[in-house]
Simulated assay, not measured.
Amino acid sequence: MTQIRDAAAVRKACDRLGLNEPVEGEVKLFSQTVSGLAVQLAKWRYPVVFDLATGESKFDNYQGYWGNQQHLDEFLQAYAVEKTKLEARRKGYSVTERSLEGGRIQLSVNLGD
């Protein structure tokens, strides 16, 4: 699974998907309390909480009854796209993005001359 370690990319992924801003702190899931950066996915009973130090994610979607796994997969894809764009731009590269069929995304990184 994708490791989530960059708060800026999490925020950009939330913006991209029209989700509320992530919230840092302690969050109660069904059977445990966890700390990290919490993202409330659409129609999920509990948020997904990312520990940026370890890259781990914690969530309780009760095998899909409390949240559709597809929504988490879409978030992880958005995070990966935004993280790639941030890193490329940090190095002075330009990035173009193209949507492909089936929800896939193609990124092209231009390294210059």
Rank of each mutant, 00 (worst) to 15 (best):
E101L: 12
K85Y: 04
Q77A: 09
R98F: 09
R16E: 07
R89P: 01
S94K: 14
G92A: 03
L111K: 15
D73G: 10
N68R: 15
Q106N: 07
G67A: 03
L19W: 02
Y65P: 06
S35K: 13
N68T: 11
L100I: 04
L29A: 03
A80K: 12
L72Q: 08
R16L: 09
F50K: 05
D60S: 09
T33F: 05
P47I: 04
L37N: 00
A42T: 13
R89V: 14
D60G: 08
L41V: 00
Q69P: 11
S31P: 01
Y93M: 13
Y79N: 03
V81A: 07
V10Y: 00
V23H: 06
N20P: 06
H71R: 15
A53F: 02
A78H: 06
E97D: 13
D51C: 04
A7C: 06
K58Q: 15
S108Y: 12
F75V: 05
W66Y: 14
Q63E: 15
G55S: 07
L41C: 02
G18R: 04
K58S: 14
Q40R: 12
L19N: 02
G55V: 04
S94W: 13
R89N: 15
S99R: 14
K43D: 15
K85P: 03
W66A: 12
N68V: 05
L52Q: 08
L29P: 05
L29F: 07
L72I: 04
N110S: 13
G102K: 06
V39S: 00
F30E: 13
Y46H: 10
F30L: 11
P47C: 02
K58W: 05
V81E: 10
Q40W: 10
A38V: 02
G18L: 01
R11W: 01
D73H: 11
A9N: 03
R16Q: 12
